[in-house]
Nucleic acid binder design. Structure first.
Length: 172
DNA sequence: AGGCCGATCCTCT
DNA sequence: GAGGATCGGCCTA
């Protein structure tokens, strides 16, 4: 995951969509926490974030990768890649995982991920994360060395193998 | 009204 | 490792 900070932070995060204040696209970021912010990138892909700050402030995490546990064949079909593809090919990358889960801006932007009636929900599956590596974010052209990317070291499904240098922290 | 460009992915070398 | 696809959104005039 990667964090993108709202303009209330000092210094403000110039890589964030919320940098210049609310716009029609970024209004979800200024809403309540725990909601999906999905945007179109390069005219053909989507990326999904989870809003994190209280209503009125912006701040989110971009989900860059996930480990698929079930429905792998369906994800492969959604991605239009061979059914026997490895997990990494399915969901390693912010737009790949949106393809795999068939997430799009029209249907999923703004959904409350903590509402048990939502079509898309965020739940704790109890996965034991014991070590997190903090690195620079990927694919941006400003604030390129801010330590705001959080990864599980050496995980099979990591996106962007590059820039794996950073500070390691142990949880618990 | 027009122009620029991106929190990417895939293909080809 | 480099380059093209592709278009909505945001800025400037």
């Amino acid at each position: 995951m990667e964090a993108y900070l709202g303009p209330h932070n000092q210094p403000p995060d110039p890589a964030a969509h919320s940098y210049r204040g609310p716009t029609p696209r970024s209004r979800i970021l200024f809403g309540p926490p725990g909601h999906a912010y999905i945007y179109t990138i390069y005219g053909r892909y989507f990326c999904m974030n989870v809003t994190c700050e209280v209503e009125g402030l912006a701040g989110c995490v971009l989900v860059r990768a996930l480990q698929p546990l079930m429905g792998l064949e369906r994800m492969a079909r959604n991605r239009d890649i061979p059914l026997e593809s490895k997990a990494r090919q399915l969901t390693s990358g912010p737009s790949r995982l949106c393809q795999a889960l068939a997430l799009n801006r029209l249907r999923h932007n703004g959904l409350d991920l903590l509402n048990p009636h939502s079509a898309l929900q965020l739940r704790d599956d109890g996965f034991p994360v014991c070590e997190v590596l903090i690195t620079a974010r990927i694919g941006i052209h400003v604030a390129i060395d801010w330590p705001l990317r959080f990864v599980i070291p050496d995980h099979e499904c990591l996106s962007g193998r590059k820039s794996l240098t950073g500070q390691s922290i142990v949880l618990g």
